[in-house]
């Protein structure tokens, strides 16, 4: 995993005509002690880029939920973050059990979380539901016993 202090230095040097920032972050499945650190780091990056508070807030929620899902269910995964002048694009790919019924998994309150996950206050069946709520565009595909792919786009007002 890339160190956050290193990332902060690279924020302004990756600027090109097409994107303001792009990077990939690994997520370790099953490691609850690190859960949320990627989302926290991404939030700082988006803030540093000067994105509006609302866009930062939505992106942070989406990244957090996606990160928790990978930690809770998958062996490993990664988040690709790309910021363009018009959008924040967040792609999450994991290697894990996959989702047999995506429509059902999208319902608020539906969860396959085990007791241990629920006792920590996760597994409320709000993850994918929240991601959908806070995205302007949300695509999900999944293959059982292989993994799940999410693509989220959050629009930014054209102020940067």
């Amino acid at each position: 995993m890339v160190a956050w202090n290193k990332l902060k230095i690279t924020v302004h040097t990756t600027k090109t005509e097409n994107y303001l920032y792009t990077n990939s972050f690994d997520i370790e499945g099953g490691n609850f002690s690190k859960a949320g650190t990627i989302a926290t780091g991404i939030k700082s990056i988006l803030k540093e880029l000067g994105l509006p508070n609302d866009v930062v807030r939505k992106s942070a929620i989406v990244c957090y939920e996606a990160e928790i899902n990978v930690v809770s269910y998958a062996r490993k995964g990664f988040i690709n973050l790309t910021v363009t002048p018009k959008t924040v694009q967040i792609e999450i790919t994991d290697e894990g059990p996959g989702i047999p019924d995506i429509e059902l998994a999208m319902e608020q309150g539906y969860s396959t979380a085990n007791q241990q996950i629920r006792e920590m206050g996760f597994g409320a069946g709000m993850g994918l539901y929240n991601i959908n709520c806070y995205s302007d565009k949300f695509d999900i595909s999944s293959e059982v016993n292989k993994g799940t792919f999410l693509k989220i786009i959050i629009n930014t007002p054209q102020c940067i």
Partner: peptide, 23 residues
């Protein structure tokens, strides 16, 4: 419920909870 807190709490809030773990 952490997802509920994530979705509905705000910056500057004081968070009241029974959860004691590091998350």
């Amino acid at each position: 419920l952490l997802s509920d807190v994530m979705a509905n709490s705000h910056e500057g809030d004081i968070w009241i909870t029974r959860q004691v773990h590091q998350n």
